[in-house]
Simulated scan of single mutants.
Amino acid sequence: MNVSEAARQALREAMDRLKAGNPLRTDGAFTKENLYKEAGISRATMNRATDIRAEWDQYVAEHGRRTEGEARRDTDIDSLRKRLRDKTEECAALRRKLHAAATVIAALHHDNQALREHLDSHSGKVINLDSQRAK
């Protein structure tokens, strides 16, 4: 079955736009549905252009179904996920350190309180060390 030269030209231009990531009528995904819609022809007309369809199938097999924009987006998402994972681990480590520091501070506060009570019970007063150092 023959396909008009205009339909063939429309399919080739549609392929070029899809490959370049500049679709006019579709979302730009590498699908046959987008190919015929981008070309502005029917699916039946595209199916009769077996040589162009074979070129399309070969291109998709070699380059995958993702457009350059989709591949770039997926790479960016992977990079952001890694950064998020790293920051989450960093936050967890800092949270553990903060918890440990709070535990130590609480223990020191308790010890300080106990020492003050001990001093108060034995000498009756707490001596300010800063005033003693000045002498």
Results as ranks from 00 to 15, higher is better:
residue 99 H to E: 12
residue 115 L to H: 09
residue 61 A to S: 10
residue 95 R to Y: 04
residue 82 K to W: 08
residue 92 A to K: 13
residue 13 E to H: 07
residue 34 N to I: 05
residue 117 E to C: 01
residue 135 K to W: 15
residue 118 H to P: 00
residue 122 H to Y: 13
residue 128 N to Y: 05
residue 49 A to Y: 05
residue 34 N to K: 13
residue 33 E to S: 11
residue 85 R to A: 15
residue 37 K to L: 07
residue 48 R to I: 00
residue 41 I to N: 02
residue 53 R to A: 14
residue 66 R to Y: 15
residue 27 D to T: 02
residue 131 S to R: 14
residue 78 D to I: 15
residue 134 A to D: 07
residue 75 T to P: 11
residue 129 L to A: 12
residue 55 E to L: 05
residue 10 A to I: 05
residue 7 A to R: 11
residue 108 L to M: 11
residue 116 R to K: 15
residue 96 R to P: 00
residue 128 N to L: 12
residue 60 V to L: 04
residue 134 A to P: 02
residue 52 I to L: 14
residue 21 G to F: 04
residue 73 R to S: 09
residue 76 D to A: 13
residue 45 T to F: 01
residue 17 R to F: 02
residue 96 R to N: 05
residue 20 A to M: 08
residue 131 S to D: 09
residue 128 N to R: 08
residue 10 A to D: 15
residue 26 T to L: 04
residue 29 A to P: 02
residue 62 E to T: 12
residue 36 Y to V: 00
residue 81 R to A: 06
residue 10 A to R: 12
residue 97 K to D: 09
residue 84 L to A: 07
residue 128 N to P: 06
residue 77 I to A: 03
residue 68 E to M: 04
residue 100 A to C: 03
residue 107 A to C: 04
residue 77 I to K: 11
residue 19 K to V: 02
residue 6 A to Y: 12
residue 55 E to A: 03
residue 5 E to V: 11
residue 41 I to Q: 15
residue 23 P to M: 06
residue 56 W to K: 05
residue 23 P to I: 00
residue 125 K to E: 06
residue 51 D to T: 01
residue 115 L to G: 07
residue 14 A to W: 11
residue 91 C to W: 11
residue 91 C to K: 15
residue 7 A to N: 14
residue 8 R to K: 15
residue 28 G to W: 06
residue 27 D to I: 00
residue 109 H to S: 07
residue 46 M to T: 02
residue 101 A to K: 08
residue 82 K to F: 08
residue 45 T to W: 09
residue 45 T to R: 08
residue 130 D to W: 15
residue 114 A to P: 01
residue 29 A to G: 01
residue 18 L to V: 04
residue 33 E to N: 10
residue 94 L to F: 11
residue 134 A to Q: 09
residue 75 T to C: 13
residue 26 T to D: 09
residue 58 Q to D: 15
residue 40 G to S: 00
residue 5 E to L: 07
residue 88 T to N: 07
residue 68 E to R: 13
residue 135 K to D: 09
residue 79 S to F: 15
residue 8 R to N: 10
residue 13 E to R: 07
residue 128 N to S: 05
residue 34 N to S: 09
residue 86 D to C: 12
residue 105 I to K: 12
residue 59 Y to D: 02
residue 94 L to C: 10
residue 123 S to Q: 13
residue 54 A to L: 11
residue 130 D to Y: 05
residue 115 L to D: 13
residue 37 K to W: 07
residue 108 L to Y: 10
residue 97 K to Q: 14
residue 115 L to M: 10
residue 130 D to P: 07
residue 59 Y to F: 00
residue 34 N to E: 14
residue 114 A to G: 02
residue 85 R to L: 04
residue 57 D to P: 04
residue 28 G to N: 12
residue 59 Y to E: 02
residue 95 R to M: 03
residue 112 N to L: 04
residue 91 C to I: 14
residue 32 K to H: 11
residue 82 K to A: 01
residue 82 K to L: 15
residue 38 E to L: 00
residue 89 E to N: 04
residue 20 A to T: 01
residue 39 A to E: 13
residue 105 I to S: 09
residue 11 L to G: 01
residue 118 H to C: 00
residue 27 D to S: 02
residue 45 T to D: 06
residue 21 G to L: 03
residue 61 A to N: 13
residue 124 G to K: 06
residue 113 Q to G: 06
residue 113 Q to E: 08
residue 121 S to Y: 02
